[in-house]
Design a binder for these strands. Structure first.
Length: 278
DNA sequence: TCCCAGGCTCTCT
DNA sequence: AGAGAGCATGGG
């Protein structure tokens, strides 16, 4: 566990291990964090805005109360987890060991379930720059103002809209899927908050009831929004890597924390796609 | 311009 | 059960 120091106008995470802001906030698991030219990251989750930056090996958070930090930011950044132990457990596979070493500053964010679900509905057959654009327009049009930006819209808000209402976000064929997800969540037909308490298989089968949600999108929602660290989303990049570098099989040593391995591999192959040796 | 993008649904065998 | 077309839109 990290040393947390509550300072006057900031929260200091001392001696942070395995927490690189750029790797964690811009590795493709979340789409709404941004960094300014001074290296200060900013973003909104659970309707609250914070900023983060590095300070001599510590990470400083500003804009969060002590209460909000202990209530959700600590879990949002997965601070209780010992990532070095996870990385050690991956070392029996050489390629995975290299990927984990390269991506060792990534932490799996525990995002709001509905935001994770919608974000990865939008991600299907899409590229990351455009995913970010669509989500940004979704928040600007239908979220609530928070500081200089916007919150992610609630399921209730989106459920009140029609597919035509979503035209400004230019999400294409995915609009009807967003509406269906919002309706099922806001009506209570699907209780996203309960998914963390179900088994992985049970939780996935619940999400598959939503139109436009298949195994990959469901796994992303479970991994990034519901704490199911064993979920292993198989996108085109991962399928390629599994076939080329892992003999078509997910390494056995990833069992139990496969989602972390998945994110390491995803980051590794994308950051090195112009290199030959990996 | 053309190919492709953190896939899924629908249809046809 | 498995294969393949189509899908909206636009980044590179």
């Amino acid at each position: 566990m990290n040393d947390i120091v509550y300072e006057k106008n900031a929260i200091r995470i001392k001696n942070v291990k395995n927490f690189d802001l750029a790797q964690t906030l811009d590795c493709g698991q979340a789409f709404r964090w941004s960094v300014n030219d001074k290296g200060v990251w900013s973003g909104v989750a659970f309707g609250k805005y914070i900023e983060l930056y590095n300070d001599n090996g510590d990470i400083i958070i500003t804009g969060s109360s002590e209460r909000d930090f202990s209530d959700f930011w600590s879990d949002y950044f997965d601070l209780p987890r010992d990532y070095s132990a996870v990385i050690d457990s991956f070392s029996s596979n050489e390629t995975l060991r290299l990927a984990a070493s390269f991506a060792s500053g990534i932490r799996i964010l525990r995002q709001e379930p509905f935001e994770a679900l919608c974000s990865f509905i939008i991600s299907q057959n899409n590229n990351i720059p455009r995913i970010k654009g669509i989500i940004s327009r979704l928040c600007e049009n239908f979220g609530e103002p928070v500081k200089e930006t916007y919150s992610f819209p609630s399921a209730e808000k989106l459920a009140s809209l029609s597919v035509e209402d979503l035209a400004p976000i230019r999400s294409g064929f995915r609009a009807k899927y967003i509406i269906d997800a919002a309706k099922k969540v806001s009506s209570g037909e699907i209780d996203l908050d309960s998914l963390k308490n179900l088994s992985y298989d049970e939780a996935q089968s619940v999400l598959l009831k939503i139109k436009g949600v298949g195994p990959k999108v469901a796994d992303c929602a479970l991994l990034y929004g519901c704490g199911h660290i064993e979920a292993f989303p198989k996108d085109v990049w991962i399928k390629r890597a599994i076939n080329e570098y892992f003999g078509g099989e997910i390494p056995e040593c990833t069992k139990g924390a496969a989602g972390i391995a998945q994110q390491y591999i995803f980051y590794y192959i994308r950051e090195n796609q112009n290199n030959k040796h990996f």
